[in-house]
Amino acid sequence: MSHLLSIKDLEVTFRTAEGTGYAVTDVSADLKPHQITTILGESGSGKSVLGSAIVQLLAPNASAKGSIRFQDRELTTLSAKEMDRIRGTEIGWVAQNPQSALNSVFQIGTLIAEGPIHHKYITKNEKPTFVRKILTSLRLPEKLDKQYSFELSGGMAQRVLIASGSGMVPPLLILDEPTKGLDDNNVAAVKRIIEDLAARGSTPLVITHDVDLAEELADEIWIFYGSQLVEQAPKEAFFKQPLHPYSKGLIDATPKRGLVPIPGESPAFNTRPVRCTYYPRCPAALEICRNQACPTVTLDNRRVKCLRY
């Protein structure tokens, strides 16, 4: 088995007062181990929901259909107890907004060690050594363990949050917007940490909307648009020749490549999309795109969801 995670025909919907919202539709993907995969997409494209679906922590009004296989186990059918055991030990999660994702009434050392202690990964006596080791490996001062999250800068808080989520070196580590709101130095530090974790055996799955970060960090890139996974490709190939028209638009919209905006607005998700969700904005749309369902095509080592291929 060469895939760490296999997602098949995943669909996540939300029941709301206005009706059903489709956050993730028709997503199939395979995650290769020991490399960094980045999910790129704009806000509301469904990339974070995909992450929550993988750790089985969707909001109570959400429901998921399809299959998520992780190391030969079907996560969608596991009991809550089994999922509790997997979360943190085998699938790690690093939430966004570190300042509000760290409990401000507990010391940093407690936040870093409580997960490993409760999973019996370390004993209570090993806590000081463990915390010191983690802090050093994240290039943070050791005395931080007695401090509280509100005493930290944004960059430090982000690193502490990564520490609390990755302490047990989970084989799969999902990071939700790990560089949001950080300055260049801290982005570089976080990047180094993610690379370290990959080298230590984790497979980071980085959710971001930062194209530059993806270009520097990723081995594999997944593009999310309008609840669908429109393209999956190795980084070099992707940036040399993006296949999906949205990928092209996304790359051209970055500052260093001309800052060309994509016309139109993100789609609303109150109906199940039948055709390509990018169709209304697509500069390369064909006549058949209007009313034909859009399959995912495999080309060499990449996949693209577009009728042009």
């Binding site: 922590l57 509790d84 979360r87 999660w93 939430a95 907004n97 994702a101 409760h118 989520g165």
Partner: peptide, 17 residues
Amino acid sequence: HKQYIESARTYLPSVFY
């Protein structure tokens, strides 16, 4: 529904704790 609770939920196995 606070973020620090949802974040702790992703690595703590015990709902009681």
